[in-house]
Computed example of a mutant assay.
Amino acid sequence: MMRGTVGVVAWHGTTLRKTLHSFSAPSSSAFLGPNLPDVWVARDHTSLPSHFPETLQWENGHNAVILDGKSIAKQIKLKVADEIRRMKSGIGKFPRLAVVLVGDRRDSHTFIQVKLKACDQVGIETVVVQLPKKCTESELLDVVSSYNDKTDVHGIILQLPLPQHLDEEKIINVVSPEKDVDGFHPSNIGNLVIRGRKPFFVPCAPKGCIELLLKHGVEIKGKRAVIIGRSKIAGLPTSFLLQRHHATVSMLHAYTKNPEQITCEADIVVADVGIPNIVRGNWLKKGVVVIDMGANQVKDPSGHGFCVSGDVCFEEAVKVASAITPVPGGMGPVTISMLLSNTLDSAKRAFGMIRNFE
């Protein structure tokens, strides 16, 4: 063991207020950022770091592993980029993704920009079509259908949610299942549900959730999992995937009675609610693994602009959980990397090169 110092940072956005005290850490301590050790000793929720180390250790001895989505996403993106480089050099072709956006929602534009940047980093070409908020359903269907017919487009994503006057399900159904890299088409969801069948694509957030658990060595088989929220984007397909990995799954929703009591029995909790901090520390049993899929834009405590908050109250949950995803930096990066992976797989299938690149 070696001696060192730990910076205790106040939890106020990016404002840092450092104090130093001694700590003990293994000699192989790996630093993830400036002055950040792999074990962070915290006194209370106000002393959580703004950039997460591998482990948070409370002064009462409880350890919580931070499930770092950024590092896993980086590995996936490097693999995708390498395969695309080999694809370009080998056959002179590359993946292309069509992005369809309706209206001017700030969060939708933010998500699209993140996706476009990630595509550019790995070599996926993108084409973006933005329609006005008041576009007709027929206009939107024509755009989506046109990309179904383009052989040089391998993936289509329809940024959700859509304006209320548009039938979301009807438009999703028009996307070709073989280009549905979001994994929302009924045939892809249906094949995910039925044991023994394989969808063209698994939805990105659920696929990322399983990847995050497996990469960190979290045991799924035989464990009790609780999914809070049943959206078709995350909660519902995550329950199907967890069942494929032989977890016993309970699904909580707006009509569930005593959700806290049910959640307290879970070994794995996945939150997909869309309400900041709805899952409190007293909902969780000691040692639980927490996956927070929330990405809620809330006013920054400093009063300047907005910040992203999860569905789980991190400051409370981290005192109980054995492992937990931060927000941001947890599920978000992994979800984006799964979109890249799905788009690459679609291109490989179109080029008849699945086996060549596996």
Results as ranks from 00 to 15, higher is better:
Lys134Asp: 15
Lys134Met: 12
Thr136Asp: 11
Glu137Asn: 05
Glu137Asp: 09
Glu137Cys: 05
Ser138Thr: 14
Ser138Lys: 15
Ser138Glu: 15
Ser138Tyr: 12
Glu139His: 10
Glu139Lys: 08
Glu139Ser: 14
Glu139Leu: 05
Leu140Asn: 00
Leu140Ser: 06
Leu140Pro: 09
Leu141Tyr: 05
Leu141Asp: 00
Leu141Ala: 11
Leu141His: 05
Asp142Lys: 12
Asp142Leu: 13
Val143His: 10
Val143Thr: 09
Val144Pro: 01
Ser145Glu: 14
Ser145Arg: 14
Ser145Trp: 05
Ser146Ile: 03
Asn148Val: 10
Asn148Glu: 08
Asn148Ile: 07
Asn148Gly: 08
Asn148Asp: 03
Asp149His: 13
Lys150Cys: 12
Lys150Gln: 15
Lys150Thr: 07
Thr151Ile: 12
Thr151Met: 10
Asp152Val: 10
Asp152His: 13
Val153Cys: 12
Val153Ser: 06
Val153His: 09
His154Glu: 08
His154Met: 05
His154Val: 06
Gly155Val: 07
Gly155Ile: 09
Gly155Ser: 07
Ile156Ser: 08
Ile157Gln: 06
Ile157Tyr: 01
Gln159Asn: 04
Gln159Lys: 02
Gln159Met: 10
Gln159Leu: 08
Gln159Phe: 11
Leu160Asn: 06
Leu160Met: 13
Pro161Ile: 06
Pro161Cys: 01
Pro161Tyr: 08
Leu162Ala: 10
Pro163Asp: 09
Gln164Pro: 02
